[in-house]
């Protein structure tokens, strides 16, 4: 795999139960340590390439998620972490859950699990890096913006 740039992550907790969040954070700490791939967790959407979302979407956070996504520079990859973010999971039937992240954003990679294991999350991130490269190449070939991506 040809990683041309160190991808920076932005993590946002949709309406998760924290289980997946702490696993995302665990990826950054010494035992799993994604920093060895050059991945850094950033708090600023304008620095981020990969958007990790945990938890489902509800009415209150839908606009926050959309806002963060729109603030990220292109190309960007969205990774849904945990079954909640994939399709609502155990909370699917709750009155306040619209469903997974794909109800508001185009999701590129789905990481299953409840809670998603750090190994699975890292796998998702590595796949996201490859996708990021692809997107970058594609963008270089045809500079006209893709209307679907404009969100």
């Amino acid at each position: 795999m040809n990683v041309s740039k160190s991808p920076w992550l932005l993590h946002y907790d949709g309406s998760s139960c924290n289980g997946c969040d702490i696993e995302v954070l665990a990826c950054l700490t010494p035992v799993y340590d994604v920093e060895r791939f050059g991945v850094i967790n950033t708090g600023n959407p304008k620095h981020a390439d990969i958007f990790l979302i945990t938890g489902g979407i509800n009415h209150q956070n839908a606009q926050v998620v959309r806002q963060i996504y729109n603030q990220m520079p292109k190309p960007k990859v969205v990774v849904a972490v945990g079954i909640c973010a994939c399709n609502g999971g155990i909370f699917k039937e709750c009155y306040n859950i619209q469903g997974g992240v794909d109800t508001v954003l185009p999701v590129d990679i789905y990481v299953p699990g409840c809670a998603a294991r750090p190994e699975a999350i890292m796998d998702g991130v590595v796949k996201a890096v490859a996708l990021l490269d692809q997107k970058r190449k594609k963008a270089a070939e045809q500079p006209a913006p893709d209307p679907k991506e404009a969100g």
Binding site: Q60, N96, I97
Partner: peptide, 25 residues
């Protein structure tokens, strides 16, 4: 309200054994 899911209401849809899984989440 950003994380509100409404899981207390799920007791009406899952029986009391199943609800243990919801309570854990």
């Amino acid at each position: 309200g950003f994380v509100h899911r409404g899981l207390e209401k799920l007791v009406e849809k899952k029986d009391f054994h199943e609800y243990v899984y919801v309570a854990e989440r």
